[in-house]
């Protein structure tokens, strides 16, 4: 580490858009801390993609970097085009749960299946925050939201387990109450290739917390701390016992040939075959 860490050297001089107590700021600063600890003095090795939602504002336009702020759910397709045409840059996607596993879910699954070499960071605040607190595919069962005033009657999606099943090379989940673990997972993800996914369960005191009975962000962080179960422990527990708990840890780390490797090999073979004929 060459110098003291400061988020400022990576940011444009603009006022941040987040509500007081928002977990997105933790995710932003832990990502930048990871980048700093890996020795990057700037963000020139990265291209950032995001969609629509509060978390999409983490990189765009605040990071002093190339950023493509796309439509709701479409950050991963744009990242696909960028990574395939510029394999030399590290493409990082930031998005919320609605963006990544709601409207953009199929792109998430297929990018993991293809093992597209991108790093997806999902800030899971369990709600549609920017639009005022509507039920999300990640909202806990029975939660009161603006569109489920009698409590949500659906069960939430486990994005981390889905990423493992779909073929991701690295998957981890932490909460914003565990910033150091979050940062270490981000560092690890940035150091390997293939499809990498880190889910940060994050507090939204404005749109989720207050309807769920939390007075402030601190209470939500306390809730995270009291309800996290490390994955090795969770494996020994029944589904019933895990109800309402947040399973955290590293879900998988493995190596698979990446889409970039496979596609450029196919190009080479096509060209060789063409020359022979």
């Amino acid at each position: 580490m060459s110098e003291q860490f400061s988020v400022k050297k990576y940011l444009r001089d603009l006022p941040l858009p987040f509500c007081p107590g928002c977990g997105a700021m933790t995710v932003m600063s832990e990502f930048l801390r990871a980048v700093h600890e890996l020795g990057h003095d700037d963000l020139s090795k990265f291209v950032f993609c995001s969609g629509i939602g509060c978390s999409a504002w983490i990189p765009s336009p605040y990071f002093m970097a190339d950023s493509v702020h796309t439509l709701h759910g479409r950050s991963i397709p744009a990242a696909t085009g960028i990574k395939l045409m510029r394999p030399d840059v590290d493409v990082v996607v930031f998005g919320g749960d609605g963006d990544i596993v709601g409207i953009g879910l199929s792109h998430f699954i297929h990018a993991a299946r293809r093992n597209l070499d991108i790093f997806v960071i999902m800030v899971n605040n369990m709600i549609y925050g920017m639009t005022g607190g509507q039920v999300a595919p990640t909202t806990p069962f029975k939660s009161i939201t603006t569109t489920t005033p009698y409590g949500s009657f659906e069960h939430p999606l486990d994005a981390a387990r889905l990423a493992v099943t779909a073929g991701a090379c690295y998957v981890a989940r932490w909460t914003t109450a565990q910033p150091n673990e979050l940062k270490e997972s981000m560092k690890k993800a940035l150091g390997i290739r293939g499809f990498r996914f880190v889910e940060a369960v994050s507090q939204c005191p404005t749109a989720f917390g207050r309807r769920a009975g939390f007075k402030n962000a601190g209470e939500m962080l306390k809730w995270f701390k009291e309800n996290v179960i490390p994955i090795h422990q969770a494996e020994k527990m029944t589904e019933e016992a895990l109800g309402g708990k947040i399973v955290v840890g590293e879900f998988i780390q493995r190596q698979r040939p990446t889409l970039v490797e496979n596609i450029y090999k196919a190009i080479e073979e096509a060209q060789e075959g063409n020359e022979k004929s």
Partner: peptide, 30 residues
């Protein structure tokens, strides 16, 4: 591929045009 380019079949049309836009920003005519 013979011309050194990439032809991808995506999961749907939303992804197709999204990837085209990304590739264009990465400098490729798409």
């Amino acid at each position: 591929p013979i011309a050194g380019g990439i032809a991808m079949q995506m999961e749907d049309e939303l992804a197709s045009i999204g990837a085209v836009v990304g590739a264009s920003w990465a400098g490729a005519k798409s």
